[in-house]
Nucleic acid binder design. Structure first.
Lengths: 126, 126
DNA sequence: TACGATTAAATCAAATTTGGTTATTTAGTT
DNA sequence: AACTAAATAACCAAATTTGATTTAATCGTA
């Protein structure tokens, strides 16, 4: 029986997507360098392959037809992260945002800044 | 080059762990039946294998030496879900709870009940 | 201008381990 | 012996990685 394809970005795909979201338009070589700086030392061909996969999945778009090809994000980081959060919500919390929120708030004392941020958002929703 | 091992419970492992957390002590056949009720119809051997994997990883413990073997959770659902949330936090939000909170709260208007729950927890942290 | 050499980048093919699944074999019980 | 449950072996696709090969671009020379 075949193993199901990941519904969301895999770990390595996400790392590369984050580089694009942080920097905008990049060549695969640029991406490779950024990853290396962040401690993930991959061969150029590895990165180029993963960028192509992201292209095929519609997460990045190609901006030039000349070499070196350049790519930029086709989806915002918000969209990407929201999908991943949704995935967690459905798998772990049965879709309940409240359960996740309670889980977050119950396990660690929030910093003053965090409490203020949360309070502000709560106030905005009244 | 090898495909890396999942850092946390895989999707199928999590489903089975959730059955144990919901019901307590179970045989693999029990688990299979519960999963089938929930729409995941797997062969007995599939479920038994995954239960064994959970045992080896320390998520369940065996409670009997006679057949049919019975198992119960060795970790709470809170612990399991916290690990998965931590994984998401580090992969997607650089470890920042605040970023996840903002992401959650920005995308959907909370119900009155949800706001009250959050407000209460906030107040308890002052 | 044309052609060959060189270099950089893209593409392709393959290797390896994992996750998911299940039939088959083994072991235990009646 | 028959039946049930556990353990094992095997299959398949996915994820990750990268070297080999191909392609494209550029440069130097005639």
């Amino acid at each position: 029986m075949a193993r199901p394809k990941a519904k969301e970005l895999t770990e390595r795909e996400l790392e590369i997507m984050q580089v694009f979201c942080d920097h905008g338009e990049l060549t695969p070589q640029d991406v490779r360098d950024r990853l290396a700086e962040a401690g993930r030392d991959l061969a150029y061909t590895t990165v180029a392959t993963l960028v192509r996969i992201l292209l095929e999945k519609g997460f990045v778009r190609q901006t030039t037809d000349e070499r070196p090809f350049r790519y930029e994000p086709a989806r915002s980081f918000d969209e990407v992260s929201n999908n991943l959060v949704n995935d967690l919500l459905s798998r772990v919390f049965g879709g309940s945002t409240e359960k996740l929120l309670v889980s977050l708030l119950d396990r660690k004392k929030l910093s003053k800044k965090e409490r203020e941020t949360l309070q502000r958002i709560l106030d905005e929703q009244k």
